[in-house]
Nucleic acid binder design. Structure first.
Lengths: 201, 201
DNA sequence: GTCTATACCGAGATAGAC
DNA sequence: GTCTATCTCGGTATAGAC
């Protein structure tokens, strides 16, 4: 049977369809909990088709995480300029992060799976660290250095505290189901965080 | 063949041996990545013996995580009194946590596996949240309330920032291999953290 | 209670037709 | 390149002897 036009177009996207299906499953069930059979059926292709695009399960997983990590990096920081009055800017950065992340199940799952597989795939964790964490910390740290009126002694360490508080808040509230037990509004967190940094001056 | 005395003693400890072996494997390979066959061989018992103590794999996993979580809670907070001068006490709490946790592979693995399995086993994450995170935050929050000279407006949110910074530091440095890429000493983190809180007064 | 042996299924990966 | 069919191995869980 020859290919129809629509099948040819779908064929061109097959690699993307596989990655898309794999993402859903890897994020939901983890690496070991995901089978290639299910990826195939989720993507609507045969198992052998997957193996024609990716050498094995590990390769598929790595390619997937790499792609998403780098994509996330762009959407998170590329638009950020980090300019403006400290009080407003810090509040805006924090709120932007919390809004984007807390409601973004895809980002939460990525963070979760990278932590979960950090032993089996240390390169993935390192990539995430370099493209997301380190870059974010660096930007904020430079901003702190450019604003000595904040009275911050160690800009890197303080940037770590800033983002670390936000990340751990999201992890605790969203991933560890803290929200269901004892909600703590993100407004209170941001207010206290800004307050701590601002009153250092 | 009748049991010898030593076999009877070992028999009494068999449940513990199973849990011990299961812990090593679950912590290293995750829930789905661990097989009952390997647990059996690690514990030095037959597979059927495991099934005589635990109904299935899920029960074994839950019993294990519960036991460790509760045990960890005691060793982490029972001894803490949270009394003394703020500057000294906060530094001591932070340093104690960082020292105990950063070098305690068992604690790190527990944290990792709870995050990894938080979807499949939400009750585990909630137990951890209630016995460790919430309790720690509560103790510190009460201390903040008892020391109004610190000028802290929202003691709960600030306690979250305090512990959140520490936890995220350990996660990034130890679990995500940040230590190998760009080390940030725990001293700098603690100094900045104390500095932020102290200069609020 | 504890072992050996096994049932039964699904895993990753491959063969071969088209 | 893509499919169906299959190989081989290891998974959870159980049966039955002792």
């Amino acid at each position: 049977m020859t290919l129809t036009a629509s099948q040819a177009i779908l064929g061109k996207q097959k690699r993307e369809r596989i990655l898309q299906g794999a993402m859903q499953l890897f994020f939901r069930d983890g690496y070991a909990g995901t089978s290639m059979d299910r990826v195939a059926s989720e993507a609507g292709v045969s198992k052998q088709t997957i193996y024609s695009y990716f050498h094995d399960k590990e390769s598929l997983f790595k390619a997937l995480i790499e792609q998403i990590t780098i994509a996330r990096f762009h959407t998170l920081f590329e638009s950020e300029q980090l300019q403006g009055e400290p009080d407003q800017l810090l509040r805006q950065v924090a709120e932007t992060y919390l809004l984007r992340v807390a409601e973004d199940q895809e980002y939460l799952s990525l963070l979760k799976v990278i932590i979960a597989e950090s032993s089996r795939f240390p390169e993935m964790a390192k990539l995430y660290y370099q493209t997301v964490i380190q870059r974010g910390r660096q930007l904020l740290s430079q901003y702190f250095d450019a604003h000595p009126e904040l009275g911050i002694q160690d800009s890197e360490a303080t940037a770590h505290i800033f983002f670390g508080s936000l990340v751990s808040f999201v992890v605790v509230q969203e991933i560890m189901h803290g929200k269901e037990i004892m909600p703590l509004s993100s407004e209170r967190l941001v207010d206290s965080l800004i307050d701590l940094i601002h009153s250092s001056s």
